[in-house]
């Protein structure tokens, strides 16, 4: 039987997940990721998500750098970055980030620089929100594991 602390943390985790689903931040793909986590790889989700954070920040930097160029015209390159962002976002269940990528890609296909700038700001905002909430989720998960007496390697 888990200790009371672990039970409460489990409830906190489920509440936060339910909130993120209700807001459309995450979708069922995130639950599928959680199903792939077991005692042989207890940190599978956070490992995947940490790679996602690392790659996403690179993509966001590249997108901003492209848009800030004085003679900007490389919409094709932006589209390639966005496809990658969309693919990884949908694969971890980051629904709202993915949806912003779809709108952003539409703006690149219309060579709409103002639309691209607006979409980039929205994308950065959604990404930051997602990152903060997932960090919060992983912190609760870590605390719950400790309260339950499970020793998992700490993720940075």
């Amino acid at each position: 039987m888990l200790g009371l602390g672990a039970d409460l943390l489990w409830a906190d985790m489920n509440r936060l997940l339910a909130f993120l689903f209700h807001q459309g931040v995450l979708d069922e793909q995130f639950l599928q990721l959680q199903q792939l986590q077991d005692e042989t790889s207890p940190n599978f989700v956070s490992e995947v998500v940490n790679i996602y954070f690392h790659e996403s920040e690179k993509l966001l930097r590249n997108l901003r750098a492209l848009l800030m160029e004085k003679e900007f015209s490389d919409y094709k390159k932006m589209g390639i970055h966005l496809n990658q962002f969309m693919g990884s976002s949908s694969s971890i269940g980051a629904k709202r980030v993915r949806n912003v990528c779809v709108a952003f890609r539409a703006a690149t296909e219309q060579n709409n620089r103002a639309g691209c700038l607006r979409a980039l700001e929205m994308l950065e905002h959604e990404y930051c929100y997602l990152k903060n909430k997932l960090h919060e989720l992983f912190q609760i998960e870590q605390q719950r594991a400790l309260a339950a007496g499970v020793r998992y390697p700490v993720q940075n």
């Binding site: 599928q32 990721l33 199903q35 792939l36 077991d38 790889s41 599978f44 490992e47 995947v48 790679i51 996602y52 790659e55 990658q84 693919g87 990884s88 694969s91 971890i92």
Partner: peptide, 18 residues
Amino acid sequence: VDDDAIIRKIHKTMLERL
């Protein structure tokens, strides 16, 4: 076959585990 490390990891794990 995918250039994205995240997707390679997720797909490989899913196919092997499930």
